[in-house]
Write a protein that binds this DNA or RNA. Sequence first.
DNA 1: GTCGCTCATGTAACCGTTTACACCAAAGCG
DNA 2: CGCTTTGGTGTAAACGGTTACATGAGCGAC
Lengths: 339, 339
Amino acid sequence: MKGATIRDVARAADVSVATVSRTLNGIDKVAGLTRDRVLRIADELDYVPHSGARALSTRRTDTIGVLLPDLHGEYFSELIRGIDLAARARGLHLLLSSSHGDPAEAAAALRAMRSRVDSIIVMLPNAGEELLHSRKGSAPMVFLGSGAHRDAPSFEIDNFAGAFAITRHLLDSGRSRIAFVAGPADNFEARERLRGYRAAIEAAGGAERVVAGDFSEQSGRAAAGELIGAAPPDAIFCANDMMAIGCLVALRDAGLSVPGDIALAGFDDIPIARYVSPALTTAAVPIAEIGRRALECCIELAAGRPTDRRHLFQPVLAIRSSTQPTDRPTHPGSKGEIS
Amino acid sequence: MKGATIRDVARAADVSVATVSRTLNGIDKVAGLTRDRVLRIADELDYVPHSGARALSTRRTDTIGVLLPDLHGEYFSELIRGIDLAARARGLHLLLSSSHGDPAEAAAALRAMRSRVDSIIVMLPNAGEELLHSRKGSAPMVFLGSGAHRDAPSFEIDNFAGAFAITRHLLDSGRSRIAFVAGPADNFEARERLRGYRAAIEAAGGAERVVAGDFSEQSGRAAAGELIGAAPPDAIFCANDMMAIGCLVALRDAGLSVPGDIALAGFDDIPIARYVSPALTTAAVPIAEIGRRALECCIELAAGRPTDRRHLFQPVLAIRSSTQPTDRPTHPGSKGEIS
DNA sequence: GTCGCTCATGTAACCGTTTACACCAAAGCG
DNA sequence: CGCTTTGGTGTAAACGGTTACATGAGCGAC
C-alpha cells in the first residue's frame, strides 16, 4: 500500500540516499554502473518521489494553479483544454479551482493554493481590492481577461475592437435597429464589449438599445423576449455566444426567423456556435490558444524569467448564417470564417 | 515573498509550535486566551500551513485527483463542474489530468498523482491491464463509467436500458428504419448503448443498421452523410449527443427536415442538447450529479470508511422536438422532459 | 502534606526529499 | 614521490509541519 521511499531504494541498491537522489535528478555526476543499478532498482520498487517532501526542500511543486470564475459551459471547457494541453506537454500538474464570482472566495482559494503551486492562472472578471491584497505571499500570477493588475502579465482580448467589428458588420449588412444584450455590469470584458457596440452605433449616427444580461443562456432568452415585445430590432448582438443561443431559442419560439426577421450575433466563438441553426456569427476568440499561452507564461514566471507584460488578442469575425442578408442558409463553417 | 511558517507564528505569539499547531487544527485543548492570541497572530502574519510539510507528516493532502479521457466539450465540463461543486463544499482541492485515451499515459498520470492526492476519480472507458497494474501503490480510486475493476467503487449509467428506451421510443413514434451511429469500439459505454439498440430492434423484429462513429461532432456529420446516401433511414439514434448534433448539421445541409424526414436522438443530455434546433431528444444522464456523488465517495474511501461498491444510474428519456411525429416544433424544455 | 489527577504547554522525533560539505581514492603534475 | 585535482560517494542539516511523550502547575481528597 504505502509506496517505497528513497531510503528503500538506497538500501536495496546499496548506496546512500544522496546517490539515489542525484541519479534520479540527473544533476550531479554518478558513475555509470551505480547509475544503472539505482535506476533498475527504483523501477523494480516502483518508486515515485513524494511530492510533498520534494516541495519542502526544493520549494517547487511542478503544479500550476488555475482559478476561474466558474466551470460552466464550453468557454471554460475550451480554456481548460488549452491549459491542460500545455501543462501535460511540460509534465506539470493542474490544480483547479473556481470562485463562483465571489471575490472573497477567490481570495480564499488563492491563499489555499499558496504552497501548492508554482504559479497561478487567474481569471476574475470582477476582481477588486481583495485580490491585490491576497497577492502578497502568493505564487506569481498570470491574469486572464482583466489587465487591471499592474505588474503581472495578462492575456487579454480586444473586446472593444471585436464588438465594434460585429456591430459594423451588422450595419454593413443592412441592419439599422441593432440591439445589444449586455453582460454582467461588474464584468470588465462585458463592459468593453458594450463600449465597442456603442462606439460603432454612435459613429454610424444610429440609436443604441441595450438590455441587461448575465452571460447565461437564460438571460439571453429573457432579453430576446423583452426586445421583441415592442418595436422589435432588426438585429441583436449579444455580449457572448451563450446568450445569443438563448436569443435564438426565444426567437424561434416566437415564430421569428433568423436571419430573415432579425439578424443575430454573439461573441467568443465557442465550439457549438457553428452547430446551432442557423450557425452563429460571432467574434472568434482563440480560447484554447490563450490557455496554452497563459500556461507557458506561468512557467516563465515560476522560473523567475522575465515575460511580456501584456498580450492582446484580436478577435476575428466569424461570419455565418445568422447574419446573412437573405433567408437562404449557407453551409456553416465555410466562407468568411477564419478559425 | 516567502510565507510565514509555523515557527514565525509561535515566536510572535510566544508559545511553542505545538501549541500553534494544536490551535489551528483544533484537535487538542488549548486555553482560550492563548488560543485567541495565536489565531490573531496567525491572521496578522497571513499564515498558511505548507501543504507539503503537512502531507509529509499526516499522509493527507486534502486533494482529490481527477483523471479523465479528455477535456473536450460539454460532457466533461459538466462532470468537472459537479466534482468541483462537491470538492469546494468540503474544502478539498482538485488535481486534474487527462489521458487522451492512451492507457500508458493514464498509467503515468496515476503514478504521478500518487503522493499528491488522497484518492482519485478515474474515467477510462477503454482501460486495460496497465491500469490494474498501476493501482498497486496508488491512492484508492473511484471509477466512472466502466465497472470492470473488481473491488473499487464505480459509478455507472445503465447504458443498455437507456439505449433500449430511446430505440423503443423511436419505434413507438412510428419510425421503422432506425439507424444507429456507434461510439468508439473500445469504449465500454458505447458498446453497451449499441447492445441496447440492438436488443430493442431485435425485440421488435426490425432490421438493424449500424455505422461507425467516435463520439465527435465530425464523426456524427460523416455518419449522417453515409446514411442518407442510399436508402435513408427514417430515424437516426446516435450513441451520444455530440454526434447527434453533427448529424443535425449534415441533415440540415442536405436539405432534410428533422423530425419531418428523419427523427434524431442522442444520449447524455449535455446542456446544449435543448438549445439546438430542433431540440434534441436524448437519454438524460445526471452528469454533474454523478460527479458530485463520485467525489463524495472518494472522501469516504480516503477516510478508509466502507462505501457502496456499485452505483447504477438510470437515464431518463428527455423527449424533445427532434423525434416529434409531426413537423411542428414544440417548446424546448417543456413536456415529457425530466431534468 | 503528599498523592494522584487534569489541564495546558513544551520538547523533540519523525515524515521523505535535496544538497552543502566532507571524505577518500585515483590520477595528474612537478 | 609528495601535492593538488578531480570524480564519486556518504553524512547530516535543512525544509515546515504533526504528535507522542514529558513536564509542571493547580487542585481536591485523604
